[in-house]
Simulated assay, not measured.
Amino acid sequence: MKKLKVQDLISIGVYATVYFFTVFIATMLMRFTVPVFHSLLVPSMSALISGTIYLIVANKIPKFGAITIVGSVMAVFFFAFGYFPLAFLPSFLFPLLADFVQTKTKIADKSKIMLSYTIFSFGLTGPILPLWFMRDAYIDSLLAKGKDMTYVNSVFEGVSTASFFVSMILVVITSFVGLKIGQIIYNKHFAK
Rank of each mutant, 00 (worst) to 15 (best):
S121E: 10
T125S: 12
V18M: 03
M1G: 11
K5E: 15
A191T: 12
L29I: 15
G146H: 12
V152H: 06
L93A: 14
D99C: 07
Q183N: 13
G123V: 05
L40C: 13
I173W: 14
G126Q: 06
T150E: 15
L170I: 11
A87C: 08
L115R: 01
V14P: 00
T105V: 07
V172H: 04
P43W: 12
M149R: 14
I25T: 03
I53R: 01
L93E: 08
T22I: 09
T103G: 00
I12S: 00
P43S: 13
F164K: 09
K106P: 06
S72V: 10
V166M: 11
V76Y: 01
S116T: 03
G71Q: 08
P130G: 04
S91L: 03
A108V: 14
I169P: 06
K180Y: 09
K5I: 06
L4C: 02
K188A: 11
G71A: 07
V70M: 13
F92T: 04
L40I: 11
D109N: 09
P90I: 00
H38A: 14
N187S: 14
I184V: 15
T52C: 13
A47I: 12
W132I: 07
T105N: 02
K188P: 10
L4Y: 02
G182V: 11
V172S: 05
L170D: 11
F190E: 05
V171H: 06
I56G: 02
K145I: 08
D148V: 13
V76Q: 00
L143E: 13
A16T: 03
